[in-house]
Every structure is written in structure tokens, then in C-alpha cells.
Design a protein around this nucleic acid. Structure first.
Lengths: 337, 337
DNA sequence: CTGAAAGCGCTAACAC
DNA sequence: GTGTTAGCGCTTTCAG
């Protein structure tokens, strides 16, 4: 069966010609139908339907300069934390009839830059970004060019960029203090690279907790850098359990990593928490339902997204704002003797 | 601290003026740098840097008509199945330097239409969509207007639309046949609305399996319509366990629903699979690590995305193709006595 | 209430 | 190697 040839898209002037009116009038029925008489409006609408006319967004935008879409760049779209965040953003955006587009940087600054450029070129209302590195100069430059920016899930290092974050230092401390209280003195932290701000902060919190307990972090804490997903937890834990002097507790930088860790532990025959305790981060939906229910640092993820969208949608001349939420620890079986 | 005023974005003619060249030359250094002499190119580049010039994507696109972005609309961005799918798409797209933008329809045809329109207006290379209803006329119309469409996760009801799907009838049958073999004769199916094609097909498969076993579906099978997430599984299972004549097995239309189901069952003190067996669908990462490891119908999710991107990226005059994968059943503790 | 026309920023001929 | 210019499709004065 021969398919329809993809002929040129109908334009507003095609519609005008068919309806026997001027392009201005067509534009009016599109944007200010009340300015147009009943009769002509109907003629134009018929022509539109007949030609299957769809306005060219680029042309419109070139003319008016703006659009009701906001872009988001997160580290990993496969991580429930980020999708829950996206849900929160969407929920708030919906109220103002804005739409959200999401892209995943994979923690790669180049991919991040690519999407940032894409969004900017397309003139989105603003961009929410979970930066892949600690360096935000490119974002400041973006903001200087008039693009509304909200930093997601990390505090802004500069005054001029709005941000919505959760206190990661506190979160890291919460987890490690709990482990210390459970009597652990050899704790491994399966973390991501410190170029990712959240990772650096959670580590700092871990160190703080150890010091607060009057112990030496060098004795108690060790850090393994892994990728921020289940495979990372898998790999890191494999390395850990292969050793003679394996730690008695593993703190994972997120629940995906913890999932991988738990998987390896279970298959290797270790009992959790008796042989090894595990603590995760984010408290995603499945954390409570795992073979060993996972202790995890809970963040107000949805609320985080809502607030971020709130900030983004404020009038263009609003002062930058820096919102900081506090995490809480949810203790479950994976760490409680 | 007063913030920088968002002045008008620099345009190509600002750059030309500052560099003392024509706009054509600026355009050349942007798009065909080799056509330009070393010296002028440097002058232009300096001007670009100085003005922080970023080309206006709308204008460019209006002129050239195309863009290397593809859009995807999925039912629920918070469902790992769809994000794994998105990962597969991204992986393939990356090879050709295309970028992916994802939006979530929430199973709402209106939201779907909104994003479809958005993507079309912005002239994306093509759109991948998991339709929220069985009705695809609007997609055929889109395709007729020259937008490349690939149906995701469901076979195309029409020849002219490419599609990449997994055999959901077979998947549904696989699950129910297994339950039947385990001796269950009262099976509840926690399903989504049949307007979603996957839901209708999985139900059809379930019915088939019962009939193939020589039983009457009306006796064996009952269906509850729930929302396609953990809360849906939660609600559906609550309703089920409140009854005297509760079923001995629950088949969930996806693993998120199964997660909710398992949660309720556990809290209500039922033993899985002894009191109630549970089977999920998708075999997401966490399925194997749950308190009761979940039997689930596995789909080649990542591969699905890769093939979909493959189809989308083929030359514009390629014939539509319909790819169908086969699911497999992964039996775990939640259903195996 | 409708039409004419300018112009948004860019690219691609086409001159020189 | 560089400049000039038409025109992509649309919105928006400004006349009438």
C-alpha cells in the first residue's frame, strides 16, 4: 500500500487563500477569535480543518519570543528519585498550564551542556537542572542571558541562582550517626564522585558524624566511588565482601545503589543486618518492601519539585531564593539489630 | 545585590556589527567555518564570546525546517518500565547525535495531545508515543502531516504507523497459565482500563489461558480496574482481601501495582505465596529483591527502546515496520509453592 | 471587522 | 572570502 507523501505542511497563508481572507485574519481566529465575525471565523476554521493546518511553533516563537514550556535536566531519568521529583514539578506546572520536558545528563557535563543549549535555543521559560559538576559558571552565564534557572537538589554556590535543595550534610550525618549508634565502627560509604555536590556533602556529613562521636574518620570510614545505580552498588559491594577485613556496615549514596548492594549480599549468603548493615538514601517506594526492608534517608522529593516549579514561575524580576529542606531517617530492618 | 537585567538576547547582526562583518559571514563561521578566513573567523568568535551570543533556535529552525531532537510521550514517567524504555531510546539516539525529550501523559488523552502538539509545533524529527487510548486517528493524521511516528509498546492497528511492541496477549497468557498450573482457580487481575491497549491484550491473554485449560473464565477470573501504580495495587488488594471469598492469586498488570499489592498483603498478615500468590509484569530491577521475590513477565525493555529509535531514524521514505517481541515468564517465590 | 505590511533571527543563494 | 538579500511562518500595529 503506497503511503501518503509527506507534502509540505500547510501554512497560515495557505489557510488564508483557501478561506479567501488575509493572513492577519487567520492569525486572529487563532489567537483572538472574538475579534472576528462569526461567519469568517467559520470559513477559516473549515479551511484549517481541511488543510490539517498546525501552526508552526518556531515561527510563532520567533515572533513572540516566549513559550510555556520548562526544561529539566536530571542526572538519571531511571532513578525513581528524579522521576518523583519530575512528578512534583509537573504537578505545579500543570496549575499554570505549563509543560515539562525532561532529559537525562547521565552525569556527563557535555550531555548536560547539550540539553541546556537545546532548551535555551528553543526559548523555554526556564530550566531546572541537577548539575553534573560542582562548577556552575555556565549556569550563571545562562541566567545572565535571561534564562530563568533553578538549581535542583543542591544549594546554589552563588547568590544569583535560585535553588531548592535538601540538606545533604545533615542527611549523611543522620545515616552514619545511626550506624555508629548501632555499634558499627567500620563503615563503607558507596558514594559517587565528589564532583557531584550531593555526594561531596553526604560524605562531609558522614565525616562530621564520626567526629561528633569522638572517633577518627580515618579509622571508621572508607569510601568507594561507584556509579549511581544498582550496578554500582553491585560492583562496590562485590569488592567489599571479597576482602578479609570487610566493613560491618555499608552506607549507600542512594537506594538504587543499596538495591545492588543488597542483591550481592543476599547472593553471597550474608545476613542483613547481622553480618552487614545497609543504609540507603532517598527512601524510594520500593525501599520498605525489599527482602530486607531498607533503612533510608528520606527526602521530601515531591515537595522539592513543587517548590522548584514555584520559584521558576515567579515573575522574572523576583529575587533569587534558596530553599533548603531537611531530610529524616527512616529506620528499618536493614540496619536495626 | 541587584541582579543583571535580562537585556535582549544578542542576535547574529549584533555580532556582525561588533566584528565588522556581514551577517552572512557570521552565519558561515557558525555553520561552515572552513569557508571563512582564519583572521575574520577569530574576530567573529571574539565578538560571539563577548556578546555571549547563542543562536536563536526558532529562527534557525524556521529557516531550515528541521532539528535533531525526538520527542517521546509515555504513560507514566515514574514507572521504571518507561524510564528503562527511555534509556534504550537514548542509547540508540546518541549514536546519531540526536537528543531525546520525554513527557508523561498520565494516561490522559488530553495531556497526550498537548505534548504531541508541542512536539509537532517545534518540528521534532519524530515522536514516539505510548498511546493513552486505543484510538490512533490523531496519530495517523500527525503522520500524514509528515511527522515520523513510532508507536511504543503496542502494535499498530493500522498499517501506516510503525510500531514496536511486546506480545501482551502472550504475556497475559504466560502469567495466568502459570498460576493455573500452580493450582489456582480463583484469580484476580488488577488491571488498568481496557482503553489502554496493553491492558486489554493482557486480559485477553489471561482469558485465553483459562480457556486453554478447559475452564470457564467467568468462574476463574475476575478483573478489578485500578490505577497503574503502587497506589492502585494497594487499593485493589485492599478491596480483595476484605472479602470472604477472596481469590488465591493476584495477577498485576505491572510491577508497580504488584508492589502495592505485596505491601498490603504483608501488612494484613497474609503469607505470599501460601495464602495469596502474586504475579507482576515488566520484571523491573527491584522485582527480584522484594521481601517476597516477585514472579513477573519479563519484557526486553531496553531493546524495545533501541528498536523504536532505529525505526524512527530510518530515512523518511522507509516503509512502516511492525516489530513484535516475545515476553518470558520469570518465576520467583511470590507464586511458587 | 478586515487587510496590508513590517519584521522577529537566521540560512543559503548569488554576486562581487 | 565576504557581502547582500530573499524569505522561512507568524503576530501585530496601523489603516481603512
Amino acid at each position: 500500500m503506497p503511503r501518503t507523501t509527506a507534502r509540505r505542511r500547510a501554512s497560515i497563508s495557505d489557510v488564508a487563500r483557501l478561506a479567501g481572507v488575509s493572513v492577519g485574519t487567520v492569525s486572529n481566529v487563532l489567537n483572538r477569535p472574538d475579534r472576528v465575525s462569526e461567519a469568517t471565523r467559520e470559513r477559516v476554521e473549515t479551511a484549517i480543518a481541511q488543510l490539517q493546518f498546525v501552526p508552526n511553533g518556531s515561527a510563532r516563537q520567533l515572533r513572540v519570543g516566549t513559550i510555556t514550556t520548562v526544561g529539566a535536566v536530571v542526572l538519571d531519568i531511571a532513578n525513581p528519585f528524579f522521576t518523583d521529583l519530575a512528578r512534583g514539578i509537573e504537578a505545579r506546572l500543570d496549575q499554570d498550564d505549563y509543560t515539562l520536558m525532561v532529559a537525562s545528563s547521565d552525569e556527563d557535563p557535555e550531555r548536560e551542556a547539550r540539553y541546556l543549549r537545546l532548551y535555551e535555543q528553543h526559548g523555554v521559560q526556564g530550566i531546572m537542572v541537577v548539575p553534573a559538576t560542582d562548577e556552575v559558571d555556565h549556569l550563571v552565564a545562562l541566567a545572565d542571558r535571561g534564562v530563568r534557572i533553578v538549581l535542583l537538589d543542591r544549594p546554589s554556590p552563588v547568590e544569583s541562582l535560585s535553588s531548592v535543595a535538601v540538606d545533604d550534610v545533615h542527611g549523611g550525618a543522620l545515616a552514619v550517626r545511626h550506624l555508629l549508634e548501632q555499634g558499627h565502627t567500620r563503615i563503607a560509604f558507596l558514594n559517587g564522585p565528589h564532583t557531584i555536590h550531593q555526594c561531596a556533602d553526604r560524605w562531609a556529613g558522614a565525616v562530621q558524624a564520626v567526629e561528633a562521636a569522638g572517633l577518627d574518620p580515618a579509622d571508621v570510614l572508607e569510601e568507594l566511588t561507584v556509579s549511581l545505580n544498582a550496578d554500582g552498588g553491585d560492583a562496590g559491594t562485590r569488592a567489599l565482601v571479597a576482602r578479609e577485613d570487610r566493613p560491618t556496615a555499608i552506607f549507600c549514596v542512594n537506594d538504587l545503589v543499596a538495591l545492588g548492594s543488597l542483591r550481592v549480599l543476599r547472593r553471597a549468603g550474608f545476613s542483613v543486618p547481622d553480618d552487614v548493615a545497609v543504609v540507603g538514601y532517598d527512601d524510594v517506594t520500593f525501599a520498605a518492601e525489599l527482602a530486607t526492608p531498607l533503612t533510608s534517608v528520606r527526602q521530601p522529593t515531591h515537595e522539592l519539585g513543587v517548590r522548584a516549579a514555584d520559584l521558576l514561575l515567579r515573575p522574572g524580576d523576583a529575587e533569587p531564593e534558596h530553599v533548603m529542606f531537611q531530610p529524616t531517617l527512616v529506620v528499618r530492618e536493614s540496619s536495626a539489630k
